[in-house]
Amino acid sequence: MAAITLDNIVKTYGEKDKKVLAVDRASFSVEEGEMFGLIGPDGAGKTTLFRILTTLLLPDSGTASVAGYDTAKDYTKIRNSVGYMPGRFSLYQDLTVEENLQFFATIFNTTIEENYHLIKDIYVQIEPFKDRRAGKLSGGMKQKLALCCALIHKPTVLFLDEPTTGVDVVSRVEFWDMLKRLKAQGITILVSTPYMDEAVLCDRIALIQNGKILSVDTPENTVRKYPTKLYAARSDDMHRLLKEIRSYPDIASCFTFGESMHFTFRSDDPHNIEKLKAKLNKAPHEYLEIKEIQPGIEDYFIQISEPAHE
């Protein structure tokens, strides 16, 4: 049975004459025990989707279910069985670590002791600071505390809205390790992130932009859908290289990508690359390096979202 299903969910905001479409006919389902990633930039509709699934918002049309319950009708049942960590830090900053945890345990009708095994791994890391006010914790520790609070009532489905945004790299890595361990305990996890490099850590991912679900698949299959060959180029003068490659007529797309730039050709002509190199060598670059590479999630995302921007 699917832990989460969405069927043609539509949600708009705003007044009649200035309606903003936040979610546009979104459909997908998440299997029980799966770690599912919702990948997309700010304003793509991720948070709205989370709020619909956690019964905080009603969709304009379409239906959704979580843990087998309808999000509109059975909202009390869903509220008993899900854990939710909103995008921004949503704990009481003037309460200590322990007081926060105690409070959320009580309002979920449980005790810290009862489900301590679930949070133990995470809680021991913040336990030395249990008398510190939550507002005074570092970003990474805040996230850990928020995760503990979301887990304290042993939810069957866990919703994490951008848990790693703005958190330092070390904490991000640790956080994903924790999620893996939770998944091993059978908890279904829906997690969103704007960082494309985190997508590969999920079982399956949905790419979302402008409220539309662009693709739903495993990370491996997602990048396999990349339609053409992808090349990477670098030199000592990246900006000049960028301009020159872009001005080459057969180039379909060219954009900076970390230390190099990624580009594709319009046609599958096997001599494309030699011709380009010849042209580039007219005004030689130092350390010019061009090679074919495996596309990543971000490459695919750019590839499918680009038309909307031109």
């Binding site: 008993n80 939710y84 909103p86 009481y92 959320f104 979301a150």
Partner: peptide
């Protein structure tokens, strides 16, 4: 603060 979201989602 966003805590209302969590309270609403709680039982």
């Amino acid at each position: 603060m966003g805590t209302m979201e969590i309270l609403l989602v709680s039982p």
